[in-house]
Structures are given as C-alpha cells and as structure tokens.
Design a protein around this nucleic acid. Structure first.
Lengths: 169, 169
DNA sequence: CAAGATTGAGTGCTCAATCTTT
DNA sequence: AAAGATTGAGCACTCAATCTTG
C-alpha cells in the first residue's frame, strides 16, 4: 500500500483545487493515518473473533459495560452514550443479545418508560471466551508497536478528546 | 460520558474473569480511546457531509485517489489496497459513483480482465465541493486539539503501523 | 488453477417516524 | 411538548460463490 504515492484524504501539498494555505496539512495527514490503521485493525479483529465463533466488538463492548456495572445491570439510557453504538443500533444489538440469552431485559421500577439490561450468565461466559483473542489481537496489531510513554500519550490526549466530542446526536 | 466509571474494552484493573498480569493495560486503554474518538468524529463528519448533500467519506477517498493519479485514472486492482474499503465494497461503491456519473468505467488495454476507473468532471466538482466542509470538520473535531509536535508523532507512528498491518486479506 | 472483478444472500447501521409515559 | 425506547425503510458492508480471462 502506497500512502505516499497516492493520497488518501489529501496526502498532497495542495487541496484538490489548488493551494489552501489556511490549514495545517499535518492535521489531515494524521487523520488519514488514523483512519487507515483503524479500519485495518478493526477488520482483522472482527474476522478473528468471527472465525472463533465469538461475539463481535459491538456486543463485546456492551457486555463488558454490564459486567462492571452495579449488579451487572444498566439502564438503556445510560448504556447509550457510554458506548460506541448509536441509539437505534444499540436497541437492535440488545435485541440480538437478548434473543441469544446473553442479556435479559427488565422493567424499570422508577420509570415505566425505562428499560433495564442485565448481564446473563451466558453473556459473562461469552465475554470470558472472547477476551483472550481480543486481547491478543489488540496486542499484536496495535500495542506492540508502541512504547509505554507513547501509549500514555495516546490515552491522555484521546480520552481528553473523547470528553469534548459530541456523544450521541 | 464516563469512561472511567464504566469500562469500554476493559477499562478496569482486571480482565473480565480475574487478574491478567501478562498484558499491558495501557494498550487496551489506548485502543479504547482511539475507538471512541474515531466513531464520534466519523459519525459527525458523515452527518455534516450528508446534511450539505456532499459525497460520503468512502466516495471522497476514492475520488481523491483518482484526482492525483496519472491521467486521473487508476485500475480497480490498484485502488483496492490503497483505500479503506474492502474489495467488494469498493466494487459496489464504484457502481454508485459510475451511476452518478462521478467516475467512468473503461476497458483495460493491457488486460481484458482489468477495469480502469477514470475521474469524471462531475467527480472533480464533487470533490471540490466536499473539501471545505470535510477540512473544517477534521480541524474542529480533531486537529485543533493537537500541537504540531503531537501531530508529527501521530503521522510518524501510525503511518509506520499502517505499512505493517495487513491490507486487503 | 490463479488473478481480476462482480454478484447474491445476509447482517447491521442510518435517519426519521412512531409509540408510550411524564 | 419532552424523554425513553422501538421500528420501518433504505443503504452499504460482509463473506462466499461466480464468472471471465490468462
């Protein structure tokens, strides 16, 4: 893959229609490289999880939030916003997880409109099974290429960025 | 959004089923924050582009590669691998772009099996229209939060990582 | 058979509309 | 009207099978 010869997201001195002096080219370059790495790593991880008949990343994320929530329960409203999925995607993903008996849907005592999601035993098992594979993939495809200091930098900057970025909607 | 209270991808001292001393927690933390920022930024950018009736990121990426290719032409085979999309996704996206007259499909002289994609004038216009919006979004949601040195670091490390990562299967 | 590209079936995400309860 | 959650229609991605040419 030639990232320098052919551009992805304007890997050239000039913007598509000419010189654009008012932007930092670095910003676009950095963003482009992040996009490329992200897509490759995610694709590889998803393939590996699928191959081993394990839950996909989106489900993993949900199950893990539940695992560490008080009583292993969480309101739909709260999951939404903590999680990478959008509201409707979360709703559909929870349907699948409930169908597969990995989570249980419960009525909310305080608010009849509300929905409580509880981690089912099978959900915890699914989490345990997926972790070694996921962990190995993160290490091999990502972590192993960075030093401790570099990882500290990424954690610090990107968690700050995440807090500033718009969550849902 | 509470990334510290409830975990996304194991934001806790322990792995789901107990202590796992053999991995660097930093790796998972860094990966998690990248995932979150990526999903939020991409979602925001896509929404903004859509709102302005501009091409989505996947199309933008393809058109831009063509814009800087010799004669504004590129073989399908070559586009695949330079681009974020997978082979079948690229095929379908090119169908849409050809349908919209943003690119033209041509026969390949050297190899009858081959396919040449050419950037059409309307495609170049689409690129020009989308850039200011895209550029602004990258700046506001991403670039503005990093110093020059930090961006240099990201470009350096992630472009090196991209070269090491598996491209298309 | 391998390489280049497309296609069918299935899955899952998107927005916007909807329904229920406050 | 607003908040909480679901749903319908549409779109775009995935893998695997297919077709064509070398």
């Amino acid at each position: 893959v030639q990232h320098n010869e052919y551009c992805c997201l304007c890997n050239n001195i000039r913007a598509p229609w000419g010189v654009d002096r008012s932007f930092r080219r670095k910003e676009v370059d950095a963003w482009r490289e992040l996009l490329i790495c992200h897509s490759r790593i995610v694709r590889a991880v998803e393939r590996e999880l699928e191959k081993e008949h394990l839950v996909p990343l989106s489900s993993y994320d949900i199950l893990l939030h539940l695992r560490y929530a008080p009583n292993k329960r969480r309101r739909f409203r709260d999951l939404n916003g903590e999680i990478v999925l959008s509201r409707s995607a979360l709703s559909r993903c929870l349907d699948r997880l409930a169908e597969a008996k990995l989570v249980t849907k419960l009525d909310c005592p305080e608010d009849p409109r509300g929905l409580i999601i509880e981690l089912a035993p099978a959900g915890e098992t699914a989490l345990k099974s997926a972790w070694p594979i996921y962990r190995r993939q993160i290490h091999e495809l990502f972590g192993t290429h960075f030093s401790d200091k570099e990882l500290d930098f990424i954690v610090k900057k990107f968690s700050a960025l995440a807090r500033v970025l718009p969550g849902e909607l």
